[in-house]
Design a protein around this nucleic acid. Structure first.
Lengths: 117, 117
DNA sequence: TTTCGATATGTCGAATCGTGCATAACCATA
DNA sequence: TATGGTTATGCACGATTCGACATATCGAAA
C-alpha cells in the first residue's frame, strides 16, 4: 500500500491576466501580516524579495484593490502591512481554499484510494 | 464588476515522486482512449509526442500499474489503448476531479465573489 | 542633517520544462 | 520481403520563471 497525497493549486484569472491571485499571493499576504514587512515576509517564505514585490504589485494592479499599506524610510527603513481590504482577501481566500482542500481530501478517499496498491 | 474565474490544478504525489498522476495525464489517457494511439492523442492535445510518451512512462512506472497496452509495428505502425486498469483510473479520476471542481465553484461563489469589484 | 534598513525596479544568469529533431526498433499487411 | 506509421529514446535548443545583484529612493529617528 503506497502512500499517496493529493496536491492542488488554486488561482484566479481575469479576462486578460493569468494568476491575479492564488495560493502564492495568499501565503505572501499572510506572511506580510505576521512579519510586518515585505522584506521579512519574503525571507520567511524563502522567496526572493524581487518576486514577492512583483507578485504583490501584480495582484494590486490586476485586482484594482489596495491590499497593502507600504511605508518607506525611517530608522527602521519602512514597513508594510495589510489594508482592511487586504485582510478581507486573506480571510475570504482562507475559507475558500480550506473548503476546497476538504473536498479534495474527501473525494480522494472516496474515489482514488481504492486504486492505490 | 470584473469577470473572474477559478482555476485549479490537481495532482498526486508519492513519497518520492512529484506528479505521478494528475490533470495532464488524465487528459492524455482520455485522448489515447478516444484517438487510439499515443501519437494521435498527443496531436489532439497539442503537446509533443515526446512529452506524452514521457508522462505515460512516468505514470506507469511510479504507480506500478499498467495503464496502457502498446502495440508496435504493422502496416499502421502500431496503436495504444487503455488497459482495464487504465480505464478505471480515468473513471475514478474523472469523478474525483469533478467533485472538486464543483466544490471550487461553490466556494468561489460563497466566499470570493463578493470581493470582486 | 546624517543614518540605516525597507521599498522600488531593472537586468542578467541559472534552472526548469517542453518542443523539435534525429534515429532505432517493430511488425501486420500488401 | 519490403513498407510505413507508430512506439521508444536521447539530445540540443528555446522559452519561461525565478533568484542574485545592483542601484536608487525614501524618511523617521538619532
Amino acid at each position: 500500500m503506497k502512500k499517496m497525497r493529493v496536491r492542488f493549486k488554486l488561482w484566479l484569472n481575469t479576462k486578460n491576466v493569468e494568476g491575479v491571485f492564488g495560493d502564492g499571493k495568499w501565503r505572501l499576504l499572510r506572511a506580510i501580516d505576521s512579519e510586518g514587512s515585505l522584506n521579512a515576509a519574503s525571507k520567511a517564505l524563502r522567496i526572493s524579495y524581487r518576486k514577492a514585490w512583483g507578485d504583490m504589485s501584480k495582484a494590486e494592479a490586476c485586482l484594482n484593490v489596495a491590499l497593502l499599506e507600504r511605508h518607506r524610510g525611517g530608522r527602521m527603513g519602512g514597513a508594510t502591512c495589510l489594508t482592511e481590504q487586504g485582510k478581507e482577501w486573506v480571510k475570504a481566500y482562507t475559507k475558500f481554499r480550506s473548503e476546497i482542500e476538504k473536498a479534495a481530501e474527501k473525494a480522494f478517499k472516496k474515489h482514488m484510494e481504492k486504486l492505490i496498491k
